[in-house]
């Protein structure tokens, strides 16, 4: 694989192979500790990030490789007006693989067209974030034993939340999944995502009531409802607490439900739920590192 720009660049077989490798890394980390010895990852973060940047860097170090790069545009030549294309042509001379986050949508695609080494999109604005989706899929498989035949609830900002769109697209490739989309009217899933589900004959329902939806779910994927998405503050105040997950709301949920969130969380999952064995959002962070390790291996070694 040359570069990973969107989750659509991977087919079901690629994703399954990555998850198999990640499972093996979890089971036998020592076997992978020197796989990338002598290789360098360029971590080009044109905007701040906690989880994703550290996850990529930790992934490369745990494979025995090294990391170079920057964590904000101001400490790169982008501050002097250098183009993305020129930056990656330069970096291609120093590194074996690039992980790039950029505030502009499409920047990693532009980078992949100029780089002579593989480029991984580590998030381009609100557009694509394929390694988050890989972390999400791997977490579901680790926790539920499968990524098919599941009732998956997605809750919160389903209009602008690209993470949710990618997850729905990825899960719709697997047999037997159905979706329950929980959001305020103002933040419903865009029509093109629903069209994608219809085209693939994936059943879904839409509701505004989280409590009512909870009992049937195998997976609940929470996202943040952001104040700035509402036209008026009154609507926000009316709705904001409807989409906050509390221990009381969870009373009607299945015992083997898994609760996920791409993080950062603000208040949409009560801290009291962190102790609940169904809470998986910090496992997602760890699983994201394993999937990034598997991805780096696949891209640099063709390992599956």
């Amino acid at each position: 694989m040359k570069s990973l720009i969107s989750i659509m660049d991977l087919d079901e077989r690629d994703i399954n192979a990555l998850m198999d490798t990640a499972d093996d890394i979890v089971a036998r980390p020592g076997a992978y500790a020197h796989k990338m010895a002598g290789k360098k990852l360029a971590s080009l973060f044109f905007e701040p990030s906690t989880r994703t940047r550290l996850s990529f860097e930790a992934a490369m170090y745990e494979l025995g490789g090294n990391v170079i790069g920057f964590s904000e545009a101001q400490s790169s030549s982008a501050a002097k007006g250098e183009s993305v294309a020129d930056t990656v042509k330069t970096v291609s001379c120093y590194a074996d693989i690039i992980a790039m986050r950029h505030p502009k949508e499409g920047a990693p695609l532009v980078a992949s067209q100029s780089a002579t080494v593989p480029v991984i999109n580590a998030g381009d604005g609100g557009h694509n974030h394929p390694t988050q989706t890989l972390a999400d899929l791997f977490t579901i498989r680790r926790e539920k034993g499968r990524v098919s035949g599941l009732t998956v609830g997605v809750c919160g900002d389903l209009k602008f939340g690209r993470t949710v769109h990618s997850l729905l697209e990825a899960l719709s490739r697997y047999e037997g999944n159905r979706f329950v989309m929980v959001s305020p009217e103002e933040l419903k899933v865009p029509s093109y995502v629903k069209q994608h589900l219809k085209n693939n004959h994936v059943p879904y329902t839409q509701t505004t009531d989280l409590s009512q939806a909870l009992p049937e779910l195998d997976v609940l994927y929470m996202t943040r409802v952001q104040k700035e998405r509402f036209f008026n503050e009154a609507d926000y105040i009316r709705l904001k607490d409807s989409y906050v997950l509390t221990p009381q709301k969870l009373e009607g949920a299945k015992g083997d439900l898994i609760i996920m969130h791409p993080l950062p969380r603000v208040n949409e999952i009560s801290v009291a739920i962190d102790q609940d064995p169904r809470a998986c959002y910090f496992k997602q962070v760890l699983n994201g590192k394993y999937m990034r390790m598997a991805l780096i291996l696949m891209m640099l070694e063709g390992e599956k």
Binding site: K104, E105, V110
Partner: peptide, 29 residues
Amino acid sequence: RCITTTEQELPHVFVLTDREKHEYRCVYC
């Protein structure tokens, strides 16, 4: 928010995504 707004010499490329609706989308964003 598209990269074409800052990469001045980048060509603006649109691809046909829905023939029935005559819908084109930017290849970048």
